[in-house]
Design a binder for these strands. Structure first.
Ligand SMILES: [Zn+2]
Ligand SMILES: [Zn+2]
Ligand SMILES: [Zn+2]
Ligand SMILES: [Zn+2]
Lengths: 168, 168
DNA sequence: ATTGCTATTGAGACTTAATCTCAATTTCAT
DNA sequence: ATGAAATTGAGATTAAGTCTCAATAGCAAT
């Protein structure tokens, strides 16, 4: 068993800032995944189904190790390697969002009709607060346009102390 | 000898976007460092001097491994451990800026009168282009204020393809 | 300059997230 | 049902970063 790094995990729920879901997008992520796989000549295996289900059962951010443990505790059998191999696929087909943090480990969140958003991360309690600023997004586009830089993605993470930890 | 990871290093010079130096700030970074160390009861060793000099000889971003190799090639003798121990000190006293990237390795850049800035990173050629947007900075402050989040630092990295690579 | 208390160093061991290996197994189009 | 090709998983490997600890160096006080 891999030793888990010790990290503050308290209160790792997103704050009130989460953009609400758009119910417009269908629930059938399995169909999306299946089609994606088929198109690439890949196979929808039992393991991939388990991972997909589990990803969509999660309603907040998670890191891979946490995710692996959760699957294991449920008695489902999927290897760490398969998880590491499947998440990039889910990323590629747009069902999952990867947020590379300034910490070593990236975290993930299923998309399921969520909008893009960025993050405030509390250095004391580990809380992740989502925010979305159309103005900032627009300015980024502007910056890229001016430099003829073709933007594919971005990471904006603000680190500091949340209001609970700052007052303590 | 530690095996280097293979990464695209071509054209890793910053683009034209670098904010110009402010000549107002004195050149005497060694004095700054010495005072800082003294205040903390730490010592200005030969190794620390070498590292400091070398950091300020670099005029763009660098990662630790690259940095270590460069020092070694010059025949200067400083261990990897010392570099890993010294850079956080330089960070702490504000002489160096650490930019955690979405890649595994962070990169560094000496400050020396530079303003804060963020980065465009080209995924094809590895080029790092700096930019600074007062408007974005202001919006970030605004977001934090609204959430009573005390911001300490932030990372904004936009990934994509630079104009040279996009046209190719 | 000498002394002595600490901070520091460096070689190499260790940690750990992530990737790779490869034989055994599973998927799925035919 | 069949077989080519993709996939799996246990464990090895990689590599950035951290830690250990005996030997050494800085420096303040004498
Ligand atoms: Zn954004
Ligand atoms: Zn907090
Ligand atoms: Zn900024
Ligand atoms: Zn490029």
């Amino acid at each position: 068993m891999r030793k888990r790094r010790e990290t503050k995990k308290t209160g790792r729920r997103a704050g009130s800032a989460r953009p609400e879901r758009s119910p417009a997008q269908g629930e059938d992520y399995e169909a999306v995944f299946r089609d994606f796989l088929q198109e690439k000549g890949l196979k929808l295996t039992r393991e991939r189904k388990v991972i997909l289900e589990e990803v969509f059962r999660h309603d907040d951010h998670f890191d891979i190790d946490e995710f692996y443990l959760k699957i294991k505790q449920k008695g489902l059998k999927v290897s760490r390697a398969s998880i590491y191999r499947t998440l990039p696929l889910l990323l590629e087909c747009g069902l999952v969002d990867e947020v590379k943090t300034t910490e070593r480990q990236a975290f993930y969140e299923h998309i399921h009709g969520r909008r893009h958003h960025d993050h405030l991360v509390c250095l004391s309690c580990g809380k992740v607060i989502e925010f979305y600023s159309p103005a900032i997004e627009r300015l980024q586009e502007e910056i890229c346009r001016r430099r003829r830089f073709k933007s594919l993605r971005h990471v904006l993470e603000i680190q500091g102390h949340c209001k609970d930890c700052a007052s303590a």
